[in-house]
């Protein structure tokens, strides 16, 4: 079933697909995080936005991924842009929801004492609010990342897909080795990114470790 010699001969191809997959994933999650942070902070300032924004992201989330990528092709072509619009779109609901939950969960006393210590609004956000919200944000980030790794696979239908394209090529020419290599690597990528995010969370929230 699996031909090791194909793997040995095509390490470059496999590495290329792996890198494509990582780039598609990381770019989507990073852009998604930036957009979600902006959206969440706007919502915290302008409360009336909460309903409309989360509803929009929620609707975006219910669109089947296959349809969204296919729908965008006549507008943005068979390009990285098409893939990224879809991938970013699907991270927004989870990330925004968790950033808001993290910020909403900070006890009022802590904010008040920060204010009392003379923190400005921006200072308090960076020094107090965001660090305290980090665990909940990271939960969202991990879910969004693992989900995106899987969704990247679907962009194979529009000629992207990273490891998904490797799998689809193997499928179309009935070459199981390519399918299995892609499959295993996708799971490995998801798990490794998940572990890396857990490590990052630990590094960024040393107080949480001391507490337990």
């Amino acid at each position: 079933m699996i031909k090791p010699e194909w793997i040995a001969d095509n390490l470059g191809v496999i590495a290329g697909a792996l890198i494509d997959h990582l780039v598609l994933t990381v770019l989507a999650v990073w852009c998604g995080l930036m957009i979600s942070l902006t959206a969440a902070l706007l919502i915290r300032r302008l409360g009336f936005l909460r309903g409309p924004v989360t509803a929009t992201f929620g609707i975006l989330y219910t669109i089947p991924s296959l349809a969204l990528f296919a729908f965008l092709v006549p507008f943005t072509g068979l390009t990285l842009v098409t893939a990224e619009i879809g991938l970013i779109g699907y991270t927004l609901l989870i990330l925004t929801r968790n950033i808001l939950a993290g910020l909403d969960g900070i006890p009022a006393e802590i904010r008040e004492s920060a204010d009392g210590m003379g923190y400005g609004r921006r200072q308090r956000l960076l020094a107090v609010d965001l660090p305290l919200a980090l665990p909940v944000i990271f939960t969202g980030l991990r879910i969004a990342t693992v989900t995106t790794v899987g969704l990247v696979m679907v962009t194979a239908v529009i000629g992207e897909g990273g490891l998904g394209q490797l799998m689809l090529r193997g499928f179309n020419r009935q070459f199981p080795t390519m399918i299995y290599v892609g499959f295993v690597l996708i799971i490995v990528v998801a798990l490794v990114l998940d572990v890396l995010l857990q490590l990052a969370e630990r590094l960024l929230t040393p107080w949480a470790r001391r507490a337990t």
Binding site: V73, P74, G77, L78, T79, A156, I158, G159, Q165, R169
Partner: peptide
């Protein structure tokens, strides 16, 4: 290389647009 792009209905417009 941009392979596995779908069928003619998808790929031909991509050629016209300059995606390939």
């Amino acid at each position: 290389r941009k392979f596995q792009l779908g069928n003619r209905e998808v790929v031909f417009p991509a050629l016209q647009k300059g995606d390939i």
